[in-house]
Every structure is written in structure tokens, then in C-alpha cells.
Design a protein around this nucleic acid. Structure first.
Lengths: 99, 99
DNA sequence: TGTTTATGCAACAACCATGTTGCATAACAT
DNA sequence: ATGTTATGCAACATGGTTGTTGCATAAACA
């Protein structure tokens, strides 16, 4: 995959409110399970989706490297990897920053 | 449209290499027509698409306010509005900046 | 061993995105 | 008037996204 195509995929991954809220949650606390994330999305953000829908969102973030996972028994723990986001923030878009 | 949904749309608009190259072109020179942009995309960037395909990309950028237009006879001149991009660069994503 | 807990996979529907082609419109030049 | 130039609109195919539901798997626990 070309570098540009990777950039496209990361932009697409964060072009969704639910996924940005998931990232916000993981920025507050690492190593959260799918169920924990579901619960917080519903209770803190009022995002009512099925477990599978959240699972899909998590896998989109995992595919582009924003989320890293670790298994503990049957529980998949999700953590944030800020590198791809830092890449965007310091990359092409940074030329449009103000102040 | 909610603010969040507006943010989503701007992210999606720049999640495409062709559209980022169009923005780059307009950053170099304002007030370019569709034909000028087509020619530069093909000659400078090797992006071989039809006129209508480029027209679609331009309208995506126009819809989210990244491009502003001005008519001169039958010619539609496109210029860059950096505000939406500055909004992203200074917004949610900026927390992931490094250095 | 059997039940609960946590997750994954597959099928499906609905919608959106991106490219194509063909035709229409509207200004400008000869 | 006619032809050229510049653009828009509509139809269509294709493929991707995002949600649903149902079933499968696999570890943990009483």
C-alpha cells in the first residue's frame, strides 16, 4: 500500500464521530475491552449501537494502526497508538495551522 | 448539520489523494478553472481521470467550503478557502501533535 | 460438565462514493 | 447563425461503509 493510500485510510478512519469518541475514551484509559467501550459510548456519549457495530468501528481503527490489541483470556484489550494520528497532525494538514 | 457531522465531512473530503493534490495546486495559484486543474493533475501528478471525475472532486471540496468559486463568463474559477482546513489542524487532531 | 462471558464471522440491507458515458446548456468568436 | 469552449446534469456500474441479526467459538467459573 502506498504511503498516500495509508494516509487516506487514516483520514477516513477518523472521519466518524463514533470513532473519534472511541479514541477519546482510550486516550483517557488504555487496555479497555469491547464491552467497556460499548458501555462508555452509550452512557457517556449517548451513542446507541450494537456490540457488533462498535466491534466494526474498533476493527477499522485497528486496521490502520490507531488501536493496538492484547488478549487476556477471552478478553481483547484495546489501547491507543497515537503514532498514526501524530503522523497526520504533523503531516500535510499541518501547513494549514494558524497562530 | 451538527458541528461533528461537518467535521466528519471535511475529514472525508481530504481522505483522497486526488483531492489533496487539487488543494495543493490551488494553494500554489488561486482562480483556476476545471480545465486548468485537469491539465495540471494529469501533467504534474499523473492522475488520469475524466473531466467529470475532476468536476466531482471539485464539488466535494466546494460542498464543505474548502473551495470557493467565482464565475467569469462560462468559466468557473476555483480558489482555496483555508478556513475549514485550519479548523481541522487546530481542532481535535492537534492534541496528537509532537515536538 | 454445563453455563456464563467475551468475542468473531457471515449474510443481508441500505446507503454512499467514485468512476464512466451521453446529452444539455450557455457564453463567446468567427 | 454556427461552431467552439467550458461546464452541468442524469443514468449507470461497481465497490465500499455501516448497520442489523443469527450462529459459532473459546475461555472462565460454579
Amino acid at each position: 500500500m502506498s504511503d498516500e493510500e495509508g494516509t487516506n485510510r487514516i483520514y477516513r478512519a477518523i472521519a466518524d464521530t463514533t470513532r473519534r469518541r472511541i479514541i477519546d475514551e482510550l486516550a483517557l484509559r488504555d487496555r479497555q475491552s469491547l464491552f467497556e467501550i460499548c458501555a462508555r459510548m452509550i452512557s457517556k456519549h449517548g451513542i446507541y449501537l450494537s456490540r457488533q457495530a462498535f466491534s466494526r468501528h474498533l476493527s477499522v481503527l485497528e486496521d490502520v494502526g490507531i488501536i493496538e490489541v492484547e488478549w487476556q483470556g477471552t478478553t481483547k484489550l484495546h489501547s491507543l497508538n497515537k503514532a498514526p494520528l501524530a503522523g497526520l497532525a504533523n503531516g500535510w494538514l499541518s501547513r494549514f495551522e494558524e497562530q
